[in-house]
């Protein structure tokens, strides 16, 4: 049996959890295993059909007062209990902030090693094999885990969604009493960043600016492009972040975030190796830079030698035209 942890934020299922679910289902079909999805929290029954259609054969709701707020200690404890009971042989998480926090805690509780941030999963000789970037994407590691269950986190935006698995499945509900008695952390407040609906790691399109943007207020040009493009977010190079033009949570690269959107639009970014480390997994890269020798052109699918301040207004007009048609 496969178990997939389903993350809920603001009452909604995370898209990256559905990606992990679909990938689990694809591998499970090769292995002949059923797939269960685990959800924490109450009043979420409405989500069951969505999870069935995206690959779950069974949905387990873990309900209880102590589960309303995320706590890695409490969640890992109850997940481990469930895993032992249903004898899950593999457990997948989306490699989101929550998944990255929870999966290693759970793995340690189960006494097993963990495959973090995987970009490929396959079945070889009846066992799961994982591929993941190491050295900030300068190399890739193919690994197998020696102990069961196999626990892995899957990088968002890499695994395709699938929603044609039908609307039927089994639902089970578990009332969880407050059995976790050890000291635990508790999220008491979520401070949303203004205007940042979508994180760069989750965006399907990243509109990124570098030192060539010249000033903080010019990032508004990129924010305006984002308003036109669905599921997009603003990214930045470290130079832009270090200049104080935009927050570090937008930084893409070795000491920032690793993104793999469908489209990466780079404006005024030279393409230093540390920046490429964070975005070279993008499916399509378009770069605008006034220097024809900029290294970013070596990896761009389309490179445009031009002044970004001259191109962006036209790009905005053109996008408005085609996207509102």
């Amino acid at each position: 049996m496969f178990l997939v942890f389903i993350e809920i934020r603001e009452g909604k299922v995370k898209k990256s959890s559905l990606e992990a679910l679909a990938e689990a289902r694809r591998r499970a079909e090769e292995l002949g295993w059923p797939v269960a999805a685990a959800i924490f929290g109450s009043g979420l029954e409405v989500q069951a059909p969505l999870l069935f259609s995206h690959g779950a054969n069974k949905v387990v709701f873990l309900e209880g007062e102590s589960l309303a707020d995320y706590s890695p200690e409490v969640y890992a404890f109850h997940l481990a209990e469930l895993i032992k009971e249903i004898q899950a042989e593999a457990v997948f998480f989306a490699a989101t902030a929550m998944g990255r926090d929870l999966a290693p805690r759970l793995a340690a509780r189960l006494g097993v090693s963990l495959a973090s941030d995987c970009t490929k999963v396959s079945v070889v000789n009846g066992d799961l094999e994982f591929v993941r970037p190491i050295y900030a994407g300068k190399a890739f590691l193919t690994l197998r885990l020696k102990n069961k269950p196999r626990v892995a986190t899957l990088r968002p935006n890499v695994f395709p969604l699938a929603s044609d698995f039908g609307q039927e499945g089994e639902v089970s509900r578990r009332q969880v009493q407050a059995t976790y008695s050890r000291p635990a952390s508790r999220v008491t407040e979520v401070l949303r960043e203004e205007g940042a609906e979508l994180d760069v790691t989750e965006a399907e399109v990243v509109v990124s600016g570098g030192r060539g943007m010249k000033a903080a207020e010019n990032f508004n040009l990129l924010r305006e492009l984002c308003r036109l493009i669905p599921r997009s977010a603003v990214g930045a190079s470290r130079s832009a972040v270090d200049s104080g033009w935009i927050g570090h949570q937008h930084q893409v690269g070795q000491t920032g975030k690793t993104v793999c959107p469908n489209l990466y639009l780079a404006f005024g970014i030279s393409g230093a190796i540390q920046h490429l480390a964070g975005m070279s997994g993008s499916k399509v890269v378009v770069a605008v830079n006034k220097d024809p020798e900029a290294p970013i052109f070596k990896i761009a699918d389309l490179g445009v030698v031009a002044d970004l301040f001259q191109v962006i207004p036209h790009l905005q007009a053109e996008l408005k035209k085609v996207l509102t048609e």
């Binding site: 190399a139 690994l143 885990l145 052109f297 699918d301 389309l302 490179g303």
Partner: peptide
């Protein structure tokens, strides 16, 4: 180790695209 290294590889080289002016 609970991790068995099957292989380590360099990333697939990305083909350069078109540059326009």
């Amino acid at each position: 180790p609970g991790v068995e290294v099957v292989k380590v590889e360099p990333p697939a080289a990305k083909q350069a695209g078109r540059v326009i002016q």
